[in-house]
């Protein structure tokens, strides 16, 4: 800092602490509820301090929700979505920023427009698409007068959980913007050296994009981990569900015993991996976003 301004610095700390409290309050509440018995949680006003049953409840939640298996699924799905999104977006952005060809802007807008239709609306037809990926081929064959029974069912598979979610307008947009800030000289020099487009991509552009990719990977991992509606509808096999679904199945409904303590405990457990990712990697996240322009 250039100079010392005590009052302002203290004010800043106060503001940040307030902000932090605001953020943590709901989480604290989840922790408190998660550490009591069901009966204690039902009293009014609800308890403010944690009870002594946290680990017992955690064990119950873990076992009832089958969270062990579901965590593995969530992890695979989240990593798959993050990796897939980054891969397809990187390639698309490279094509759009570095090549002059017909349909360039068309391709860009085709990708961009995918932001504009909420998932809830296209659930039924998308489900059909996942249930039989070969459906469009079948129609084509039908048009050609052939009747073929193609059936490629991706339900209850990691592919079915990941693939429909990996197209990403925003990641493509991000990489495109980033490529636009890469000095022109790099590409010119590569061409003078006789390097082809792919070679330039692999040995120059890709290493430059690493911080950006890491930042994006963090964001996309969280996105993938917190998915709810799609995995719920696309999996019929319990062992292929994700952690958020396992959590949802523990949340009590009106006609049953209100075991909120177990549900809240499970909420904390399910929160844990993404929170750890944010805590440990926030430095990278910021760095990736800052470095994007250097």
């Amino acid at each position: 800092m250039v100079e010392r301004t005590r009052g302002l610095d203290i004010a800043c700390h106060v503001l940040l602490i307030l902000g932090g409290l605001l953020v943590c309050l709901p989480i604290w509440f989840a922790f408190v509820v998660g550490s009591h018995t069901t009966a204690d949680v039902l009293t009014l006003p609800p308890p403010w301090l944690p009870g002594d049953r946290f680990f017992e409840n955690a064990a119950t939640a873990w076992q009832k929700g089958n969270l062990g298996r579901l965590f593995v699924n969530s992890f695979v799905v989240a990593v798959g979505i993050a990796g897939g999104k980054i891969a397809v977006s990187l390639l698309s952005a490279f094509a759009i920023a570095y090549f002059r060809f017909r349909w360039r802007m068309v391709a860009f807008w085709l990708i961009f427009v995918s932001l504009m239709l909420p998932v809830e609306v296209r659930i039924l037809p998308t489900y059909e698409a996942v249930a039989n990926v070969a459906l469009p081929l079948q129609w084509l064959a039908g048009l050609a007068g052939l009747s073929v029974a193609l059936d490629w069912n991706m339900m209850n598979s990691y592919g079915g959980l990941i693939l429909p979610l990996i197209a990403s307008a925003t990641a493509t947009f991000l990489f495109r913007q980033f490529f636009l800030t890469v000095p022109e000289e790099l590409c010119e020099a590569a061409r003078i050296d006789g390097a082809g487009a792919l070679r330039f991509f692999r040995s120059i552009l890709l290493p430059l994009s690493v911080p950006n990719m890491v930042a994006l990977a963090i964001i996309l991992f969280l996105y993938g981990w917190n998915q709810y509606l799609w995995p719920l509808l696309f999996t019929t096999d319990k062992s292929m569900a994700t952690a958020v679904i396992g959590l949802k199945s523990l949340i009590p409904q009106s006609d049953s015993e209100p075991a909120w303590n177990i549900a809240m405990n499970a909420a904390l457990l399910v929160m844990l991996p993404p929170v750890a990712v944010v805590m440990v990697l926030q430095r990278w996240l910021v760095k990736g976003l800052v470095d994007a322009g250097k």
């Binding site: 659930i123 039924l124 489900y127 059909e128 249930a131 719920l232 509808l233 679904i245 949802k248 409904q253």
Partner: peptide, 17 residues
């Protein structure tokens, strides 16, 4: 398969497929 709304939707989607 989720709450009642989700079950009926999952059923419709699955039936159509």
């Amino acid at each position: 398969k989720g709450n009642y709304d989700e079950v009926i939707n999952a059923t419709i989607a699955a039936y159509r497929a």
